[in-house]
Design a protein around this nucleic acid. Structure first.
Lengths: 231, 231
DNA sequence: CTGGTTATTTATCGATTGAAAAATAACAAC
DNA sequence: GTTGTTATTTTTCAATCGATAAATAACCAG
């Protein structure tokens, strides 16, 4: 009649399946909850959001139904993962840094991209960003809107201002060209962290060369776009 | 006793669940197989590779076990999807185009990126590329190796040759800088097709500005990299 | 030591999954 | 028409999924 000590039992690692052996630890509500969200970020980033709540529970050394004491559904847990990754890792100071006109724009851009990539060039963030992008979840689109507004458009405005060029309104061409710079740097992170390619171990080089490359063309882009807009 | 006319029945669309109503068409082995692979590309691209074989069968108006007459397992079917997307859509002429020294390198690069993005800027290719990248399947890494060899390194070699600069061996910096250009263009496709962002509807502009931006910096990159390599 | 609270586990449900086996029906050859 | 082949469906299975309800045990207050 051997009790079905199933895979839900967090202690069944290598066969000693006696339920008794459990030194069951008991955490406070807040501690457990924080542990669950934190571990869920890592778990879903590695395994994908289609992975089972049982797999997550196993990694937490906890039974699967316990998750449902803290989150009403798997989707709610996933929503908290998004929140933790997208919202809590965004730094408002990035926008202020880029808008600080006491410094050359090139310096600001390079410092920004160092700080920004310090925040996003890690397995958890990158993989969750791509997973959620493929799923088309709302928060991913919102995040892109913020990047456009607070980063791409700010960099353009500041650069055009510094060079004494007409700023408003920014043209679609200028913004798109901003995205290509952003994408060049982002893709470096994708190759390094998602594709596990062997990349140049020199983030500074990548940031500076992409930024300089962008700066060398922005005047020409600006002139072309304005001519087209007026002609 | 109502027979369990389950979801496996391809004719159960809107309730007329009588099994009799089937005008069952019967295709040859090769036709069916081709249809399955072709539809599986679209299906898995949209729904992800975790989606069920029943979902795929439903879309094919066919029962789910029929799939197993043509493919021994779901993984084998997925492998054929990869094959069809990665191998069959690659054009060997791209390499020849880039190496044609009767034309200016800039022209070749721009023409190449037009042709290349014509091939890959579609939902199926882009989504399957990202899905497989996140899963870390072998063929994805192999594909990146080919892109590096046949595209990135070729463009660099040709450009340095045209400008009378030392070509061999290419430095890591030069190659990484090549990837940032590639990534800038690729990211344009990701924003358009994966993220469904509203992007500038002018692929020519994106390609030309990224290529020109890259060309304007490659001399400086080259000089810096060589100095570092020798110093 | 006792009683109440609650974090945690045990047990279980219905739905869905990939897959196999057996039954059926479409088509070709004669 | 009859027969043989095989494409297709029907039926079914064990495993796994998200989720619920009930039992249990750890901790705190008195």
């Amino acid at each position: 009649m051997a009790k079905d000590v199933s895979a839900d039992n967090p202690l069944n690692e290598v066969g000693h399946s006696l339920t008794a052996a459990a030194p069951r630890r008991r955490l406070s509500y807040d501690e457990r909850r924080a542990e669950f969200v934190s571990m869920a970020i890592e778990f879903f980033a590695q395994e994908g959001f289609e992975s089972s709540t049982r797999g997550l529970a196993r990694r937490l050394n906890v039974t699967q139904p316990l998750l449902y004491r803290y989150f009403p559904s798997k989707d709610d847990l996933i929503a908290e993962v998004y929140e933790a990754v997208y919202v809590q890792r965004w730094r408002d100071e990035w926008g202020r840094l880029l808008a600080d006109r006491s410094r050359p724009v090139r310096d600001r851009m390079i410092e920004f991209y160092h700080a920004y990539t310090d925040a996003i060039f890690n397995d958890d963030w990158m993989r969750i960003f791509l997973f959620s992008g493929l799923k088309g979840v709302g928060i991913h689109g919102q995040y892109l809107g913020i990047v456009r507004e607070r980063i791409i458009e700010t960099m353009l405005t500041e650069m055009l201002h510094e060079r004494g060029l007409a700023v408003a309104p920014l043209t679609e061409e200028e913004i798109e060209f901003g995205w290509t710079m952003h994408g060049g740097i982002f893709y470096y992170g994708v190759r390094m962290l998602i594709y596990k390619s062997s990349v140049l171990n020199n983030k500074t080089f990548v940031i500076e060369s992409v930024v300089d490359s962008w700066l060398s063309q922005i005047d020409s882009i600006h002139a072309r776009a304005r001519a087209r807009a007026e002609g």
